[in-house]
Computed example of a mutant assay.
Amino acid sequence: MTIAPTKLLLRLCVIILVMTISFASAGDAPRDERSPSVGMSARIEQIVLPGSELVVKPIEDYDSPVIVRIVETYPHGDAFRYDMIYYGLDPGTYDLRDYLQRADRTSLDDLQPINIEVRAVLPPGQIEPHKLNAGEHPSLGGYRTLTIVLGVNWVLGLLLIVFYRRGRRATGDETSVATPCLADRLRPYVDDAIAGKLTRNQLAQLERMLLAHWRGRLGLE
C-alpha cells in the first residue's frame, strides 16, 4: 500500500520524537492513560507484567498505527515493572502486546491484553490531502552543460580577438610600406602651381618627376 508523503513524514517525525524524548512522571500517582486522541502521547506507568523482560519490537512498518516506547524497566520479583509511552496515529482500539516482544524471544501467551483506544479528533468523513505525484520537469541543463557552453564561447571570443588584431596589424603594415603613386606625389606641386606659389626648384623637381615617369613608361631607361 502506498503511503502519502505527508502522512509518511508525520509518522517518521512521531517515531523520532518517541525514540528521543523521555517524559518525567507527574506527581506520585502512576499514570494509566488508555484513551488518548490521535497524535497525542500517553503514558502507562508502573504496570507489572509477568515473565521475562519485554522490549519494543523493531519498527518494520512505517504505516504502523501505534508507536510504543518503554521508558523504564524495573525488576519486580519474578516479573518486571514498566513505564511506557505510546502514540496513536490512527483512531481505533489496539493491544500494546502486538508491539512488544520478550528479550529472550519467548512467547507472550501468559500476558493479559494491554488494550488502548485512540480517539479521533476530527469528525468522520474528512477529506485527506491529495497524494503528491512527482512530475517531469523540462531539462534545462546542469552545471556541466553550462561549463561547456561558457568554455566554447570563451574560445570563440578569443579567436575573434586574435584574428581581428592580426587583420588590423596586416592592414597597418600594408599601409605603412605602400609607395605613394605619381598622382599623390604630383598633387602638392599642382596645387602650388595653381596658387602661383611654385618656386623654380619645385618646378625643376616637377619636370624631373614627369621625365622619369615617361622614361619608365616608354622603356627608355
Rank of each mutant, 00 (worst) to 15 (best):
P123M: 11
V162Q: 05
T147F: 14
T145S: 12
I127D: 08
Q126A: 09
L140P: 02
Q126M: 03
H130W: 06
H130Y: 05
G151V: 03
G141D: 11
L159N: 07
I127N: 12
T147R: 15
L159M: 14
I161V: 14
L140V: 07
L160H: 08
N115V: 14
V118P: 01
L160C: 08
I114S: 02
I127G: 01
D110P: 00
A120Y: 02
T147Q: 13
K131C: 00
P123V: 05
I127Y: 02
L156Y: 07
H137I: 06
I161P: 02
L132A: 06
Q112M: 11
E128Y: 08
I148V: 15
L150T: 12
V118T: 03
L122I: 08
P123H: 11
V152G: 09
R119M: 13
P123D: 13
A134T: 02
L111K: 02
L156G: 03
I161K: 01
N115W: 09
L156S: 08
L150M: 12
V149T: 12
A134C: 03
G141T: 06
V149P: 01
I114V: 14
L122N: 07
G151W: 10
L160M: 13
V162D: 07
I127C: 07
D110S: 13
I148C: 04
P129F: 11
A120D: 15
E117K: 11
K131W: 03
Q126K: 03
T147L: 15
I116V: 14
L150R: 09
Y143V: 10
I127L: 12
T147P: 00
E136A: 10
L146N: 08
N133S: 04
L159D: 02
G151N: 09
V152Q: 09
W154T: 15
Q112H: 07
V121C: 02
